[in-house]
Each structure stands twice: as structure tokens, then as C-alpha cells.
Simulated scan of single mutants.
Amino acid sequence: MKYSKIIATGSYLPAKVLTNNDLAKMVDTNDEWIVERTGIKERRTISENENTSDMAYQAALKAIEMAEIDPSSIDFILVATATPDSVFPSTACILQHKLGIKGGGAYDMQAACSGFIYALATADSYIKAGLAKRILVVGADSLSRIVDYTDRGTCILFGDGAGAVILEASDEVGILGAELKADGSYGSILTSSGHLYNGQIKGSPYIYMDGQAVFKFAVKSLTAIAKELLAKVGMTSNEINWMIPHQANLRIIEATAKMLATPINKVVVTVDRHGNTSAASIPLALDEAVRDGRIKRGDNLLFEGIGAGFTWGAVIARF
């Protein structure tokens, strides 16, 4: 049986740091209030001359460097993003061009904060089906461009960044299983409805979120899908070396870990420094833990994420 195995990781964060004290100058909030409710202390924001594809490109280069491969050997590119450079062409095609790659498939996947999980599961399926041998999967978002900085309920949460992994067909155990779900009836509790219509923006161009509703749904859904996937692959939470969750809110991460009986010291947490970077948050956290030595070859990893749609999912992989 062929597996898809993560052979490399990479990430990129914009240079500009936006602290809680910076936000306190823009909206009625303060550092203590934000940290207590979210665990976030700072986040990064993209510069005016950067695009989502630029962040994706930098993260991809880091992964390619770690893998020690020729970019032309990548035969498929999936970019998970809710903030593409343009309506079309896709950010994946723009990234492909920047990497100097021609041929092979490339497209964007829009599952909001669950995007990386969806893209990882899709890439795994492509490799197992023999449709590709080496796939670049990137999660990249520039949410600061759709945040209303007069709304303290949302502007404190979101940041920008990109993370990447390279998956390769392997005889060694890699991705063990995935589970994906969606329920569109919950779409109204987290949405950004703005879209182009006859040259104008129709709907709100900003993120709207019902924070309490999202929190309740997230903890319940993430716990359930993680337990479902563990049972599916025949593992227990005790066999997971590291949980790498979507970095939305520290309280959601802690509550989910508790429900799964996973010690918090076995959870990779970056939300305090990155904020919620949507599809980028899981690969950003993964790359940090790989590069600082916490995650080692042979470790069992549980990825889980939830986002607007509502969409949610989980992946278990041996690194």
C-alpha cells in the first residue's frame, strides 16, 4: 500500500507585528481583556505590497529547501485560502508560476479555517489514487484585509501568514486517515458576505462572527470528529504524540484537549503570537514544532480544524 508522507514543512509570517496594545489605540479594548478571552498577545499583518501568493511562495520555498528537491518535481499544488489574490487566476496557479513550475495540477481550496485539513486530505487521496507522486499543500491567508478594525469582537482575533507541507508517495506509513464534515446551516454565525457584483461590492466586505455560537459549535464538533477518526484508524488519544489544532482561540484549544484527555503540553500552541491565521494556522504551528525539535520522525500527529461553512475535519499522520 502506498502512503502519502509529509517530507518537509515551511512557513512565513509578515514582518509587521500588531500587538494588543496597538489594537487598544484603535478600538475599545486592552491587553488583559484580549488575553483573558482569546489567549492572543500579538498577530502579524501583511504589508501593502504583499499578496497571499507572496506569503505562500515564501512558505513553499522553505519547505522545498527542507526537502532538498527541485521545484519542478512537484506535480500538483493545492492552496487553501479564503483570501486569494484575485477571483481568478487561482492563487495556486500564481504560486506555480512564481516557483517556475509548468504542468501538473494547481487549484485553490476554500474551506475557510478548515482549508488546510481539507487540502491535506485531498492531496492524500490524489497520491493514494496514483494521480500524483509529490504534492505541495499550502495554507495561506491575509485576513487583516477583511477585518473591521472598529469591531473589537473580530479585529482582536485574526492575523496573516502561510504554512506549507510537501507530501510524497511512500512505502513508509504517513497519513493514516482523514475525516471531513460540513453543515451549511451554520453559515450565518461566521461569514464574510461581500462579493463583486456589476463592479461594486455587494454585502459586507468584513468578517462577521457570533463568538459564543462559534465557541460552542467548535468544541463539540472538534472533539467528536477527533474521537471518530481515532476509532476509524484504531488508535487512542494516548497514542498521539502531538495535537496540532487550528489556532482560533486558546480557550477552544484547551477545552478540546481536555475533552480528548490530551495534556496541554502535548498540544502545539502558537495562537498567542500568531492569532487566527485561518488556513495557515495548522501548517504554521506544524513547521514551528518541527524546526524547534519538538516533533520528530515517527511521531503520531493529530491535526484538526474548524471554519466557516461550517466546515471541520481531522487528519492523523505519522511524521
Rank of each mutant, 00 (worst) to 15 (best):
I207T: 10
T83K: 03
G307Y: 11
K5L: 12
I69F: 05
E254K: 15
S4W: 02
D28I: 14
P245G: 03
L18E: 04
A218I: 10
K220S: 13
G161P: 14
V290Q: 00
D272K: 02
V173H: 01
D183L: 03
K41A: 06
T277V: 03
R294W: 01
Y186L: 04
A123Q: 01
V138C: 04
I7F: 07
A257K: 10
V165M: 14
E179S: 13
I7Y: 10
A119M: 04
A82G: 07
T311S: 14
A112M: 03
L260T: 08
G194Y: 07
A308H: 05
A56M: 09
A132Y: 02
I146G: 06
E179K: 09
Y206Q: 13
K133Y: 08
I264Q: 03
D124H: 06
I175R: 03
A178G: 05
G105S: 05
I94D: 10
A106D: 06
N49E: 08
S90V: 02
D85T: 13
E48T: 04
A289P: 05
A123L: 01
S192K: 10
G115Q: 00
L196E: 14
N198I: 14
S281V: 08
M243I: 05
L167G: 04
I189P: 00
G199A: 06
K133L: 00
L250M: 11
I295M: 13
D108H: 07
K5P: 12
A231P: 07
S204M: 14
K216W: 00
L95Q: 04
S192N: 14
I117Q: 01
N238D: 13
I225D: 04
S278V: 04
M235G: 01
L23K: 09
G307M: 04
Y3A: 01
G199V: 05
Y197V: 12
N241S: 12
E36V: 01
N241C: 04
S278H: 06
A255K: 15
